[in-house]
């Protein structure tokens, strides 16, 4: 067994990179704030421009924290899924979490148009959208868990998750066919993904969910390592398979469900970050991997958000597009370089 202090150096570097990306994310945006002014504002110094101070504290810091939570949460749930399903292509959304959330959001935005005579006032806002997509992802997750308890084979569970995804995607497209352009646009904007515009309360709720997911993952570290051998071997090592599988699925549901509810369905981060992390930390030990994917995921999402903001312009690109543009080539590059995908 390699001693853990050999990993101290890469961890230190990762933390420094995270700090740098955090400050960079604060200083760049539609209004460029000089790097040293950003630092000054962070450490309570007086800043030349009052509005910079305001932008940083009221807009950019919540957004950067959201990006960190979203990146960490998605990456960790990706790691959990890859180990649980013994499949390097598994991600947080294989259990139908994102499709459930999409269905929830679609039902609220486009479905409410169909039944609009029932509503006297406007019901769609950020909070109701988050609630609807949480309920959607939770219901689909529940359906998958119910089926999972009848299916012993984890691979079958993976396919069932994908099938649920297809069904919900079909329902969403039926809804979009019958809806008007304005509502459709609203739905599409949600599906673009964004880490901005979260209220303090929303940010607090997201933090609690992510923390709960992290705690559940940490108590599963030992079982996750045993699962690297396969389910039968894990069983012979004394792992409670049913309980472990349940805890891991709940952890994924909390992490990916909360993220999707508040930031929209963000693609590829959950799939790509665990693989990228394995490139730096050449290990399969979850004691190292769990903290590493948390930091790495945060860094990557801060950078993706930075690109999405198109620094010094007033345009904001869809975050989902950026993560896909960054994530998909990474997966291809890994496959080409390693000839095969190992985890």
């Amino acid at each position: 067994m390699q001693r853990s202090n050999t990993y101290l150096f890469p961890f230190l570097i990762l933390f420094l990179v995270l700090l740098f990306c955090f400050v960079l994310n604060l200083s760049l945006g539609s209004v460029a704030i000089p790097f040293n002014e950003t630092l000054k504002s962070l450490f309570g110094g007086t800043v030349e421009n009052e509005s910079w101070q305001y932008i940083i504290w009221n807009y950019r810091i919540p957004k950067a924290f959201t990006a960190i939570l979203v990146g960490s949460g998605l990456s960790l749930s990706g790691l959990l899924m890859q180990t649980l399903f013994r499949n390097p292509l598994a991600g947080p959304f294989v259990l139908g979490i994102s499709s459930g959330a999409s269905l929830g959001a679609a039902l609220l935005i486009m479905g409410s148009a169909l039944f609009s005579h029932w509503f006297i006032f406007e019901v769609i806002n950020d909070v109701s959208l988050a609630i609807a997509s949480s309920i959607g992802s939770f219901l689909v997750l529940l359906a998958v868990i119910t089926v999972a308890s009848r299916v012993k084979d984890t691979m079958a569970l993976l396919i069932i998750g994908l099938m649920f995804g297809s069904i919900t995607a079909a329902l969403v497209s039926v809804l979009s066919y019958f809806t008007d352009a304005e509502r459709l646009q609203q739905y599409i904007f949600w599906a673009f993904g964004s880490v901005g515009n979260l209220s303090g309360l929303q940010l607090a709720v997201l933090t609690v969910f992510i923390l709960a997911g992290i705690i559940l993952s940490v108590i599963s570290i030992k079982s996750l390592n045993a699962l690297l051998l396969g389910e039968n071997y894990a069983l012979s090592l004394g792992v409670h398979l049913k309980k472990t599988r349940f805890i891991i699925i709940i952890a994924t549901g909390l992490l990916a469900g909360a993220v999707t509810a508040f930031a929209g369905p963000i693609a590829f981060i959950g799939l790509a970050v665990p693989h990228l992390t394995r490139q730096i930390f050449n290990t399969t030990d979850h004691k190292i991997l769990v903290p590493a994917v948390l930091v790495y995921g945060a860094i990557l999402l801060l950078l993706c958000d930075l690109i999405a903001q198109l620094p010094s312009s007033s345009y904001v690109l869809p975050l989902n597009a950026i993560t896909s543009v960054v994530g998909a080539p990474v997966v291809i590059w890994l496959l080409v370089r390693k000839k095969k995908m190992i985890f």
């Binding site: 067994m1 030992k222 051998l229 039968n232 399969t284 004691k287």
Partner: peptide, 27 residues
């Protein structure tokens, strides 16, 4: 006879997993 799930384990890591029943909560 079934193959192990992760072939990315090193030999010593794999053998250490045999100690799973005896180690503490985090292994």
């Amino acid at each position: 006879t079934e193959p192990i799930a992760s072939k990315n384990l090193t030999v010593s890591q794999l053998i250490s997993l045999g100690r799973h029943p005896y180690t503490n909560w985090i292994g």
